[in-house]
Design a protein around this nucleic acid. Structure first.
Lengths: 138, 138
DNA sequence: TCGTCATATACGCTTACGCAAATATATTCT
DNA sequence: AGAATATATTTGCGTAAGCGTATATGACGA
């Protein structure tokens, strides 16, 4: 059961959103559980940088981590029952109008649905939930 | 005519929202034009502090200022036609669920609709547009 | 036990931000 | 012109945040 430890201050929430790397991470995390190795691969940024930003999001209480063997999986820790959660989720919805964010999601889709496309991580664990498809192929 | 000078980067927008004073200012500005003296009075913060945060919002392109005699009036500079505008406006909508933000709006209502309540500014110019009433008296 | 892989943290540095106090600018009034 | 009012900007200082590089931790396999 998810403890509502304490309401997240709006200004603090927006601080967490005030960085493009963190926005991209949250975009990928929303709605599923994602392994760190996907973040590094898809964002194309150094591992310490990704890890540092994930730590920031963890400290803020926006995401939670779960260890599974060597891998760490991150997931959302706030739902739309809190004001902060609504702020976060509705903001991500708008951000996904941007092609760059759609592209990140598409890469995540490829990575878990077409293993081998991202060869360097084709041994990594699958996300627990399939990423929402952006502009589904209809 | 409002020039769409350049799209506001989402991370930059969220930086502007990452401060409680600026959130309160934006809450008051949205939907009308407000004189600086109201900000100082309602937020109960020092004039230089208010001015500094207004300057920040101006630099970011979120608000615009207009001089009228000795007074400066601030208004929103982004509409819901831009992604940043949608992010901003929908965020303010959620923030107004909070009593503190409702209270600020109520004080603005009093200040312009019942002159004399805030005696120290009862000589100040009226907001151009009446503030949206929060929880209208039904 | 050792080595390796996956991830996290520490360090040193630089830049941005927030605040209070002081000062500057612009406008109106006399 | 000079004083008063409304607002803006500067200065100095402390803190938080970002980055890259280097190092530490934790889990697994040989």
């Amino acid at each position: 059961m998810k403890l509502a430890s304490k309401a997240i201050d709006p200004a603090l929430l927006f601080s967490a959103l005030a960085d493009r790397t963190r926005l991209r991470l949250l975009n990928l995390i929303e709605g599923r559980e994602v392994c760190v190795c996907y973040f590094v691969e898809i964002l194309g940024q150094s591992q310490p940088k990704i890890s540092r930003h994930l730590a920031y999001l963890r400290r803020t209480g926006l995401v939670a981590a779960r260890r599974e063997g060597k891998w760490m999986h991150y997931r959302m820790a706030v739902g739309s029952d809190s004001a902060a959660g609504r702020l976060l989720h509705q903001s991500l919805a708008v951000l996904r109008e941007d092609k760059a964010f759609q592209r990140d999601l598409a890469l995540l889709n490829k990575a878990c649905c077409r293993p081998g496309v991202l060869v360097s991580i084709d041994h990594a664990p699958m996300p627990a939930t399939a990423p929402l498809s952006v502009q589904a192929d209809k």
